[in-house]
Amino acid sequence: MEYKVFCTLIITLMLGYNVLTQGVFETCNMTPQERKNCGWSGITEKECQERNCCFDSNIRGYPWCFSPRQEIEDNEC
């Protein structure tokens, strides 16, 4: 009995999460001023990507490993 309740709860949570995040996507395209640090000094590109973060080492003085920005997809005609 407990197994069925647990499975039902997991499925419900997964479906709820899917509905809440529908139309939301993440992008690494942002200005350097918008970057929020997602790593530490000396983090490698691979380590950054393993944390599901963006990596761009081209701009000094701003985080190279940073959190992606979430945007809401506009489906209006």
Score class of each variant (00 low, 15 high):
Gln49Thr: 11
Ser41Pro: 02
Ser57Val: 07
Pro68Leu: 06
Glu73Arg: 14
Trp40Tyr: 14
Ile43Pro: 01
Cys7Phe: 12
Phe25Met: 08
Ser57Thr: 05
Ser67Ala: 06
Glu76Ala: 02
Gly42Phe: 03
Gly42Thr: 03
Cys77Val: 06
Thr21Phe: 13
Ser41Thr: 12
Lys36Pro: 00
Glu76Phe: 06
Ser41Met: 10
Phe25Lys: 13
Tyr17Ser: 13
Glu73Thr: 08
Ile59Pro: 01
Glu47Asn: 05
Asp74Cys: 10
Thr44Met: 01
Cys38Phe: 03
Met30Gly: 06
Thr8Arg: 05
Tyr62Met: 10
Asn75Trp: 12
Glu45Ala: 12
Gln22Ser: 15
Arg35Glu: 08
Asn37Met: 10
Asn37Arg: 12
Asn58Trp: 09
Arg51Trp: 00
Cys48Phe: 04
Glu71Thr: 02
Leu9Trp: 07
Gly16Met: 13
Ile43His: 01
Thr27Gly: 04
Lys36Arg: 14
Gln49Trp: 08
Gly23Thr: 06
Cys65Ala: 04
Lys36Asp: 09
Val19Lys: 15
Ile10Lys: 00
Glu26Asp: 04
Pro68Lys: 03
Ile11Trp: 02
Gly61Arg: 07
Thr31His: 14
Ile72Leu: 14
Cys38Ile: 02
Glu76Asn: 09
Glu34Thr: 07
Gln22Gly: 09
Ser67Val: 09
Ser57Pro: 02
Cys48Gln: 04
Arg60Ile: 11
Met14Ala: 14
Ser67Arg: 12
Lys46Gly: 00
Cys7Ser: 09
Thr31Gln: 15
Gln33Val: 14
Lys46Met: 06
Thr31Met: 13
Glu34Ile: 01
Thr27Val: 07
Tyr62Trp: 15
Met30Lys: 08
Ile43Ser: 04
Arg69His: 05
Cys28Ser: 09
Gly42Gln: 02
Gly42Ile: 07
Cys54Gln: 07
Phe55Cys: 07
Phe25Thr: 12
Asn29Arg: 11
Thr44Pro: 00
Tyr17Glu: 12
Cys77Asp: 11
Gly42Glu: 03
Ser41Gly: 09
Cys28Gly: 11
Asn52Leu: 06
Gly42Trp: 04
Glu73Ser: 12
Trp64Tyr: 12
Thr31Lys: 15
Trp40Asn: 08
Ile59Gly: 01
Asn37Pro: 03
Lys46Arg: 12
Leu13Cys: 13
Thr27Gln: 03
Pro32Leu: 08
Gln70Asp: 05
Asp56Ile: 04
Cys7Glu: 05
Phe55Glu: 07
Ser57Phe: 08
Glu26Tyr: 04
Thr31Ser: 15
Lys46Gln: 11
Gln70Pro: 01
Lys36Ala: 09
Leu20Ser: 13
Trp64His: 14
Gly39Val: 02
Ser41Asn: 12
Thr12Gln: 02
Ser57Asp: 15
Val24Thr: 11
Arg69Val: 11
Ile59Leu: 10
Cys77Tyr: 06
Phe25Ala: 07
Val19Glu: 15
Thr27Arg: 03
Glu50Cys: 00
Ser67Thr: 10
Met30Arg: 07
Glu76Thr: 08
Glu50Pro: 00
Leu20Ile: 13
Leu9Asp: 01
Ile72Ser: 12
Thr31Gly: 14
Asn37Asp: 15
Gln70Cys: 02
Asn58Val: 03
Ser57Leu: 04
Cys38Asn: 04
Glu26Leu: 05
Asn52Ile: 01
Trp40Gln: 10
Gly39Asn: 02
Trp64Ile: 05
Phe25Gln: 11
Cys65Glu: 02
Gly39Leu: 02
